[in-house]
Amino acid sequence: MVRFKNRWLLVELIPTPGPNANPNTRLDGQKIWAALRQSVLANFGDVGWGSVGLSMTVKYYSPTTNICIIRVARDHHKIAWGALTLITAIEGTRYIPNVIHLSGTIKHAQLAAIAHNREVIARYRAQAKTPSAYQDSYEDYLHTSSMEIEALQD
């Protein structure tokens, strides 16, 4: 029996303000997957899509921290990574994709996602200049997002 081997990409989608930005656009996993599919087809053609299409899924997306976890087959993960970095806009809103972590197991992707969420929330708190003992809604978000990420299955 042969095991299906994956690569897990942890990606931050950084929104950039622009004149054509649609403020009502709410990203979700399906929109990210569709944009990634279009990027693979545009840049790598049908052969590229044929190599990654069956294995590529968006397993998690957080609209608060704009991170997502994408699963793709190990043999062709570079095609997905390349197509991901070539995405410029999703649903009319410009984004800069930043690959934060690449791992071979979902567990390491989960750990990197939780650590990155904590870093982003720390930046939000620093911008708000709140004292460290102050209780805010971010604490609840960190708890729920950690639970959601840890619940992901391969």
Rank of each mutant, 00 (worst) to 15 (best):
I67W: 03
N98D: 08
I79K: 08
A73E: 08
V47Q: 15
L142K: 11
P17R: 07
Y124I: 03
E148W: 09
G82L: 00
V120R: 00
A126F: 02
A112W: 13
M147L: 11
A80I: 01
Y61S: 14
V99G: 03
S146D: 13
N117D: 06
L10G: 08
K78L: 03
D75G: 06
S62D: 14
D46Y: 00
Y60N: 05
A126V: 03
S132D: 11
L36M: 07
G92T: 04
T25N: 15
G53S: 13
Y134G: 01
T144K: 15
L27F: 05
H108Q: 05
V2K: 15
S132E: 10
E12P: 02
R26H: 15
I90F: 01
M147T: 08
K31T: 08
P19E: 07
I70R: 12
A113G: 08
P15A: 07
N24H: 06
Q135M: 07
D136E: 09
L86Y: 00
G45T: 06
H108W: 08
I114S: 00
M56L: 06
Q38S: 15
Y60E: 10
D154H: 11
I14F: 03
R7Y: 05
N20V: 02
S103I: 10
A113P: 09
A80R: 10
G50Y: 02
R123V: 02
Y61E: 09
N24M: 09
A21W: 00
L86Q: 10
N98Q: 08
K5Y: 04
I32Y: 05
N24Q: 12
M56F: 05
Y138Q: 03
S55Q: 15
G82R: 00
P23F: 00
L54M: 13
P23T: 01
N98W: 06
K78D: 06
F44T: 05
T88F: 01
V2W: 14
S39T: 07
K78Q: 12
V47N: 15
W33L: 09
L36I: 06
M56K: 13
I90S: 00
G82E: 01
F4K: 15
A133L: 11
K31Q: 10
K78V: 04
K107G: 05
